[in-house]
């Protein structure tokens, strides 16, 4: 029952079809809404809680609370979405476009304004100067 015509048919029919590959740099790559492209930070919303740095499985994110710096090493990031899930103020998000390629292993740095915690209510009997 063996034959070679089945394959010939497929090969010949693909002559008529357009190329199956996507001509990538000429045509832009297609992304879906869910595609995991890169992590983006909205510095205005970040409260420097360091939760993302703690949850990051590869240690790609570093947060300095005293200087107000949020850093990500895109070459370490594995796009697992763990930081996005852990971010309480929703400052982090997963964008569906890939990060731009780079020739150097630089670390992306964002400056975040250090937000002072809201002043504690002054306990009765204590003067405000002591606090």
């Amino acid at each position: 029952m063996s034959d070679i015509l089945t394959m010939c048919k497929i090969v010949l029919s693909s002559l008529r079809k357009k190329t199956a590959c996507q001509m990538y740099p000429v045509k832009p790559a297609k992304f879906y809404k869910n595609s995991r492209g890169h992590i983006a930070l909205e510095p205005a919303k970040c409260i420097l809680c360091t939760l993302c740095a703690k949850r990051c499985p590869t240690g790609a994110i570093e947060v300095d609370r005293t200087k107000g710096v949020w850093q990500i090493n895109r070459f370490k990031c594995i796009l697992c979405n763990e930081c996005v899930h852990s971010c309480r103020p929703v400052a982090l998000s997963m964008e569906n476009q890939y990060a731009a390629p780079s020739a150097n292993k630089d670390i992306e740095t964002h400056n975040v304004e250090i937000k002072k915690p809201a002043a504690k209510p002054v306990a009765p009997g204590e003067s405000a100067e002591n606090s």
Binding site: M1, S2, D3, I4, T6, M7, K9, I10
Partner: peptide
């Protein structure tokens, strides 16, 4: 289905 046919019946593969 078209490709599976080849794996089932093709002469080269069976041989």
């Amino acid at each position: 289905k078209q490709i599976a046919e080849v794996f089932i019946k093709d002469f080269t593969i069976i041989h």
